[in-house]
Amino acid sequence: MTDSEISLRTEGLSAWFGDHHVVKSISLSVSRNDVYALIGPSGCGKSTFIRCLNRLHEEIDGARVQGDVWISGDSGSENIYAPGSDPVAIRRQVGMVFQKPNPFPGLSIFDNVVAGLRLAGVKRRSVLEEVVETSLKHAALWTEVKDKLKKPGTSLSGGQQQRLCIARALAVRPKILLMDEPTSALDPISTARIEELVMRLRSEVTVLIVTHNMQQAARISNQTAFFLMGELVESGPTSRIFTKPKDTRTEQYITGRFG
């Protein structure tokens, strides 16, 4: 694998909550246009790991990160934890979708989608309108909301809200999209729609998705990493992880013997 194909690479990434060491020196590389699934039992550090990739972890009181995360952009790759690196600029390149749908209350569907663009200083109405349409189409929500863009984002159903949040993340054209258990609060139909969506997004963006649903990982990802107690136990192509795991702990987990 050459450097240009790598979208994101971590080197010895560790994270703490106070004295609690929750992510232990993880090194992982993600290729461009991968859908990379992170699986593991609750509390294994997979969510914390993903929150380190856009420097959101450090926003929590007492949280700390060590190690490097390289993200390849237009001008070569950049370490987001280098001294002087600006977390705000990084979060504009690395989008995130959260476990619970979190549209901004008080903002319309339209304003929710363009919130990121407005933060970046885009003001032209024609540009915003175009982005709203393409982003909502990408997020497979356009046909359902195109006639009520002025309605509050919070008036939508849970599954629609989550797709709205995906549209909001896509609107700023991120290179990488982090998804932290995006379907765990949704019903099966909404879940299926979002899974389809993720598979289609592959061509445009690199996706890292945390899930505790192993069938989901198997369905939508091409690479999988298994986390346990803050450590990376095993990673590789999804088909191999699920059929011929090298580590016995991986095998025990995917066959349902714990977790």
């Binding site: 959101l56 979060r91 504009r92 989008g95 995130m96 959260f98 209350p105 970046a120 909001r168 993340a169």
Partner: peptide
């Protein structure tokens, strides 16, 4: 206001004031 909404804004590249 739930923390998830705050994180949503930060995750979108908002400064604290934004």
């Amino acid at each position: 206001v739930p923390d998830s909404v705050r994180e949503g804004a930060l995750g979108l590249g908002a400064t604290r004031w934004e």
